[in-house]
Structure formats: C-alpha cells, structure tokens
Design a protein around this nucleic acid. Structure first.
Lengths: 340, 340
DNA sequence: TTACATTACTTAATCGTTTTCTTAAGTCAA
DNA sequence: TTGACTTAAGAAAACGATTAAGTAATGTAA
C-alpha cells in the first residue's frame, strides 16, 4: 500500500513534510511541495480514510436515516428523489453517504450510538418514524442534524411547502367552479398531514365555503384499499362532492379504479386531484391535477445546510427552509363554469 | 470519549486485556472478562470504527454503486427494491452501506480509487453504466464485487430470470389465444434486454410462430414517448398485433394512453403486457399482465453472497444466482378463445 | 527437585495520519 | 560580531484499537 511513508522515502523527506505539503501548509518550500505532489501523483497515492479519521475526528461521511415502515421507504418516489438530491450535493462536497442502521455486530444499538461509533460528521433524517424515541435521541444529540419535512427545535429543517401546496391546488379547483370538495387526507399524526389539513380548512374558510364533516376522510399514504372505500362512500352521499382530493398520487389510484368500475368518467362525472406530482400522475389518462414537490431540490438544500453547519460550527444555525411545490393542473378537474 | 483505556483504568488491567476480553479471546480469565464487559456496558463503550479499521483493514462497510443515468436510478421501483433488500441483509450482518461516488475532496477519482480510499470490504453494483471503463476497473479489482443483472467473469452475479420471465408471459398470452404478438423491447445494448429479446424469439419459435420484423420495436425503459409512437405504428399496420408487450410497466403507460386516445378498449380491442410487476401495474384499471421481479430478494441474495465471499475468502466463489420472477396475469389480456 | 506446560495477564509495536514542538540555516539590523 | 527573526524542514507524540511476544505464577510429570 502506498502511504505517506512511501512518498517520504522517495523524496528523501520526512513524513511530516509530506503530510504538510499535501495538505497545503505554508511552511514547506515551493520546490519541495511540487516534488512531493508529483511523487504522490505518480505513485497513485490516496490517503487512508481510517487513519485520517482517527487523527482528525472527521470522516467526511454523512449518515442518512431512511426507515421503511410498512412498505414505504426507499421505493417511494418522493423520498428517493430527496435522497438522490442529497447524494449529489453531498458528493460534490467530498462527503459520502452512509445509511444509519441500528445494528452493530450481532446486537442492536441505538441510531445515535451507531453514528457515534461511525464518527459521522452529520446526519440527514429523510424518512423516519418520529414516534420512535431513538429518532429523538438522534435529533437531540451533538452531531449536526437536518430533518426533512419535520421540525425539531435542535435541527435545521427543510420542508416542502404543504400549506401553499394545498392552497394552490384548492384555489385552482375552486377556479374551475367546484364548491363541493372532499379531502381524503393521510395519516393524521404526521407533521405533513397536519399542515395540509389545516391549510385545506383555512383555504376553504377564506373562500367562504363550509366543509361538511362527511367530506373529510382518512386513509394511509400510498395505500389504495382505504381510498377505494372512502371514494365509494363519498360518491354515495346524498349530496356528493364534485371533486375529491387524495393523500397522494398513488393512493389516488384506489379511488380512480372505483370510479371507473362505477362506470363514471373523469373528469366529466367526478374530478380528482392527487399530491406529489409523481411521474406516473402525468402519464395516466387523463393526467392528474397534483402538486409537484421538488424532491431533488429538497435533498440538495438539506445537504447544503448540513454541510455548512458541519464546516462552520461558529456560524451554525437552526434554520427552517421551505421549498415551494408546483401546481400541475392536468386534465382531471372538470370545468363547471363553461362561461368563465 | 470512552475508549478501551478508560475501561482499562477502571478495571485496573491493561488495554490489551480489555481488547481481548471484549473480542472473546480465550486467554482472559472468566472473572476478569465478566468484570470488563460489565464496565464497558456501564460506561456505554463503543469501539472507534476508524481505529479498528486502521489496524485490521476491515471497515464493515459495503460500497453500493448506484449511478442514475437519465432519470433512472434511485427513483426506479425495481432498483430501489433491490437496494432495500441489500440494505436489510447487510445490516443484519453488522455491515453498513456507503454509496460510492467518484469524488474525493475537490477532484474526481475513479470508483475503484474511492473504494480503496474508504477501505470498503465489498462492493455491490446495483445500477451502473457498463460501458463505463471505471465500472470495469471496479469489477476487475481486488475488492469482492457482486453485480446485479449483469455477468462478469470476475464477480458473483445475481440476476432476475428474464429468460423464464418472458417465456412465462408469452406462453400465458399464447394460451389466451393470441398469435400476433408484438414486442417493444428496451435499449438493445443492455444485458437484460438481450436476454429478454432472445427469450422472446425462442419461445415464439418453440410455439411455432414466425415473428414479422414489423412486430419488433425499440424504446427506452421508463420512457413513454417512444412507446406511444411505437404503439400507434403497430396499431396502424395492415395486419396489426392483438397483443403488445412493453419494456416495462412504466413505459407501458405511454402505449396505454395512445390506445385510449384512439378510442380503443383494453383488453377488448387490444391486449397489453408490461414487465416488473410494479405496484402501480396492479392498481391500474384494468390491471396489467406483467412479470413481477423479486427485487427485494435479489438484493438480499446479493448481500448474502457478497458477505460470504468477504468473510470466507478461502471459500470465495464466482457464482451465478438466478432469481425467479412471477407471472401476474392481470386483466389486460383478452381471451380470444372463449371455447377453451 | 527440575523441567516443562498452562494460565492469565502485560509490554510494546503497529496501522497511517496529523500536528506541536524543535532545530538548523539563512537574513538582517545594530 | 551578535542577537533576533524568518524560513523550511524534521522528530516525536498522539489518535484508539489489535496482536505478537514476553512474563510471572501456578500446575504437573519424571
């Protein structure tokens, strides 16, 4: 293995000189520095990450927490988009990404312990169960953390603008003449759901529309069984809605199928909208009204803030970054006011 | 920081004794071992990964190559399924996953150099551009490698059974009475495509059906524009097919839309089939005939073989593992022989 | 009793870096 | 000439673990 020592011998200098030359210290003569750098190149020298980490307490690796509860996780287009953005930005800055697990040798340890053991420079929590105490231990520890779509007093957070997203979607639907709008929202305990639901009520309120309780249902994200049931229920109401908003584009499919099975047409008989702006939503027929979340950008931004907090601890800040989504109108919302 | 030294002082023994006690060497007395382990637990001791790696040349981390060329990559359900399986199995064995990039500090280095620098114990190539010389450098190096859906003389490979997959799909379509079957296949340079296409011709041959060249088209995976064009072209042939097989479930959507726009019904007027068995394919209306690839299992199996090769180099083997897919018949294939 | 094993430890070297403290040589002003 | 300063390099300790080699205390066989 080519080490600093090999170079030192070749150049007839000490290892200290080599180290300093390669790290750009200014107490090395120009001629010597050039000679050493040339030798390092020729020998194909690469520093040993472990040795460096041991000495400097910096690993240049970022831990990513990506828990997949209930089939969610890596296979979700939104989260993998975030991860992708994160990865690109982190790598651009010379860091690597390591997944945080709660295993160590044959036994279980906490996420935080795992991070300490691996000496991670920073942590990005992309997808996690925030009811898990271990996740809070992580956020309250001493390693810089950035959270995605979740706010904690001790961590920088990057969030999709769910409030604006729902408002935009709703105002668009309203502009097409809809007044009877139902909302099947996601699991009610999540941060994201709370924002979206509150924004739904606020926007409806500001539009002067009272929402009957029968128009609000709960279903899981991604899951289609429950949305199918809810859709049926909504359509069979004495005064059914003219438009249904789903938790996300995937969950929407459950409703879409029921609608087709009932022999109804979208958007002629019933309008529908999703959330996420998944690739698929724009490939369906008709294309779906939805809010495209800028997943990649959320990842990039999270990486940037995190690295900044790592490298300039004096300037470190607990920030709140909001990333705007974009309305995709699609063809799934009927125009109820042809005179407009 | 709690180190082996802290424990040694607390127990009045040398650091060597602590190290050996914790690592289960047998030249430590029972009473001492128990005392040391207890102290380690009480102090919340965790070994320093860097120090250990430096001394032992083992990092307990597995590099994953996951290149996203052209929007593919992490957001693809198949690949992220593989990654998920890989992650779970690797973690169960006390390893962590690190993404391999080609960055180091501010400059570019090769994947292989990156792996050497990080001292990775093994490498899983999940999604890569095999025309890239760097990928071959990786496969031909001295670090154990497992490849997914690609075979190289120097690496263990875990592949989805594409040959059987296409055969199963085709025989099912045949059994429903179809004889005029078109195949829009993926990019022709890939290993997977070659297998599928060959299997298509072989199966048709063994069924005694001659395939007109006009029934074979090329499109990209995931991409819908080209499949839309091809579908139109196929349907306008003087003697159009009764069934079209698409590169994958996503690319199929492009064709599906064209079909609907032409006012045709699936499967009454035209039958279609996909590949992958994506979640979405079974949520569409009608549900799609497709081959479900066992992505998670492919990941698990890859991890298992890789770790085996790492830990027992004497038994290390270049293996070829084939993972079977499963036919999902769906409702998208018309029954042309009602008497059957 | 001697010689040799066995047991249960300790000593010390080592992995590849970084960094503080020295040191030697050269420069320059008084 | 002397002392102070600057520059360019080296020596050595340190990071936290592992491990080969050494050592004392005990047991045991001839």
């Amino acid at each position: 293995m080519i080490s600093i020592k090999t170079i030192a011998e070749k150049c007839n200098v000490s290892v200290a000189t080599v180290s300093k030359a390669l790290n750009g210290h200014n107490d090395i003569g120009d001629e010597t520095r050039v000679r050493i750098k040339k030798a390092a190149d020729e020998l194909g020298y690469l520093p040993n990450a472990a040795a460096r980490a041991l000495k400097t307490n910096r690993t240049y690796s970022i831990g990513v927490l990506f828990e997949e509860e209930a089939g969610c996780g890596l296979t979700h287009e939104y989260f993998s988009g975030v991860l992708n953005g994160l990865k690109l930005e982190v790598e651009k800055n010379g860091y690597d990404i390591l997944f945080i697990s709660s295993n160590f040798e044959n036994k279980k340890i906490s996420y935080y312990e795992h991070c300490k053991y691996r000496n991670l420079d920073g942590i990005a929590i992309v997808c996690a169960d925030y009811k898990n105490k271990q996740v809070h231990e992580l956020m309250e520890g001493t390693i810089p953390v950035v959270t995605i779509d979740y706010v904690h007093y001790n961590c920088t957070a990057v969030c999709s603008n769910n409030i604006q997203g729902i408002e935009d979607l709703l105002r668009y639907i309203y502009s097409k003449g809809h007044r009877k709008i139902a909302y099947i929202h996601g699991q009610s305990n999540s941060y994201v759901t709370k924002e979206r639901l509150a924004s739904f009520y606020r926007t409806m309120d500001s539009l002067g529309i009272e929402v009957p309780d029968t128009y609000i249902e709960t279903a899981d994200y991604i899951e289609t069984t429950k949305t199918a049931v809810c859709t049926k229920k909504l359509l069979e109401l004495p005064d059914p809605p003219t438009c249904i908003i789903y938790p996300d584009d995937t969950a929407l499919l459950g409703g879409m199928n029921v609608i087709k099975q009932l022999g109804l047409q979208i958007p002629k008989d019933i309008s529908i909208a999703g959330y996420d702006g998944s690739k698929m939503s724009q490939l369906l027929y008709p294309t779906i009204a939805t809010i495209k979340q800028d997943a990649q950008r959320i990842g990039t931004e999270a990486a940037r803030r995190l690295i900044c907090n790592i490298e300039k601890p004096k300037l470190a800040l607990v920030e709140r970054v909001i990333i705007e989504g974009m309305l995709l109108t699609g063809q799934s919302i009927a125009n109820l006011e042809p005179n407009q």
